[in-house]
């Protein structure tokens, strides 16, 4: 008999201190039955990837509102790959202009949620992927 849970790491890469969205999503995911691990502010991509591996999560959710997403999001994916953990899926959210999205997806970020996205859309996405 198994007692499986989907585990998700929610992290704030970079120096951006706006965690209202990240914390909301963390709570909403918890309420949807996931096990959510929150890492707090000012995380380097290295620290996020290490935490994701130690916590053995299926998903990493990144939130960034400072415009540093193009540098930081792909870095997380890259380090996960280096550590042979490319099966850990990464999604992102925050203030992300639409013309950055194709580049981020190409870099391996599975999905990007922009302002106005509901927690339900995030939950549905995770449940169906």
């Amino acid at each position: 008999m198994s007692n499986k849970k989907t585990r998700i790491l929610i992290a704030k890469p970079g120096l951006d201190g706006h965690d209202r969205g990240a914390k909301f999503i963390a709570r909403a995911l918890r309420d949807a039955g996931f096990e959510v691990i929150y890492t707090g502010l000012r995380q380097t991509p290295e620290a996020i990837a290490s935490a994701a591996i130690q916590e053995d999560v299926q998903w990493v959710g990144l939130s960034c509102l400072s415009g540093a997403h193009n540098s930081l999001f792909p870095k997380v994916v890259e380090i996960l790959k280096q550590k042979q953990a490319e099966d850990i899926k990464v999604f992102g959210g925050g203030v992300i202009p639409s013309d950055d999205i194709p580049g981020l997806k190409e870099a391996g970020i599975k999905e990007i949620f922009t302002p106005g996205a509901t927690s339900k859309s995030v939950i549905d996405y995770i449940n169906s992927n």
Partner: peptide
């Protein structure tokens, strides 16, 4: 719902990249 929000790590994240430390 069976969900959980685990935040103890936040205080220890400085050790996340130390290969001699494992936090779960």
């Amino acid at each position: 719902t069976g969900g959980a929000l685990l935040g103890d790590r936040v205080r220890m994240q400085a050790h996340a990249t130390d290969s001699g430390v494992f936090i779960r």
